[in-house]
């Protein structure tokens, strides 16, 4: 049953010219699950996320999101996408940015909640161009979840975020997941990986290993998640 999965990626390949960025990726994420995408730079994480929200079209395979084949504009209102670089309007204030993304996603409320979640409510009047990198990242996250999407795609959301706030972010991710939001998050940070319910390791455009953090530890033969990953990656590469 495809319907029980929020995201179902089957045999997806994507090339840029002669370069194969994704090669036969299969991936299923259940509703309310937090799924971590891990992999070195250039592995294909961002490309996979773009395929899931329909920004790119696959050359082979299918992507099904919330029961609909992608690309599909109707599904997009239920997806929140936080891009890897904080993509914001520098001339607008924090609140104006968040309100804009709320409006284009058809939500009029939730701006205050989103700003409070990322602790930017007090800075809501600041112009984005004057914000520090981490503050921009927070504003970008607020823009992605302001319309309370059913599926959140977060591309390295905690880069540049200080440790205290990072803990709070993961608290809120867990709360949202408990309320039924599906979250796919890419990361390089291993202690974050440990907070995911399931992990997928991507390298050279292939899904090398998949499972809960405990499964990954077992497969990699190490109690340390980072070492387990390096072992898995090294084994497949050689």
């Amino acid at each position: 049953m495809t319907d029980s999965y929020a995201v179902d990626v089957e045999g997806v390949s994507k090339s840029f010219g002669a370069f194969k960025a994704l090669n036969g990726v299969n991936l299923r994420v259940r509703q309310g699950e937090i799924y971590g995408l891990l992999g070195p730079n250039g592995a294909g994480k961002t490309t996979l996320i773009r395929l899931i929200c329909g920004l790119l079209a696959a050359h082979a395979g299918t992507v099904t999101v919330l029961g609909q084949r992608m690309p599909n504009v109707a599904v997009l209102r239920h997806i929140g996408y936080m891009t890897q670089q904080a993509a914001l309007y520098p001339a607008l204030s924090v609140e104006e940015n968040v309100s804009f993304f709320a409006a284009i996603n058809g939500a009029d409320e939730g701006v205050k909640d989103a700003l409070e979640l990322v602790e930017l409510y007090d800075r809501r009047g600041s112009v984005v161009a004057t914000l520090s990198g981490g503050l921009r990242q927070r504003c970008s996250l607020a823009c992605a979840l302001v319309h309370r999407p059913e599926l959140l795609l977060l591309d390295e959301p905690t880069v540049g975020i200080d440790p205290q706030l990072r803990v709070q972010f993961w608290e809120s991710f867990r709360r949202m997941a408990a309320n039924g939001t599906t979250i796919i998050v890419s990361s390089h940070v291993m202690d974050e990986a440990d907070r995911c319910q399931r992990l997928g390791l991507i390298q050279y455009g292939r899904l090398l290993a998949e499972g809960s953090p405990a499964d990954i530890r077992a497969q990699g033969g190490s109690q340390n998640l980072e070492e387990a990953f390096l072992a898995l990656a090294g084994r497949k590469a050689s």
Binding site: G54, Y81, T83, L88, N105
Partner: peptide, 14 residues
């Protein structure tokens, strides 16, 4: 260039 077009494209905007 500032990446917001990508966000617009990932929204239900036509």
């Amino acid at each position: 260039s500032q990446g917001t077009l990508e966000r617009l494209m990932a929204s239900p905007l036509r």
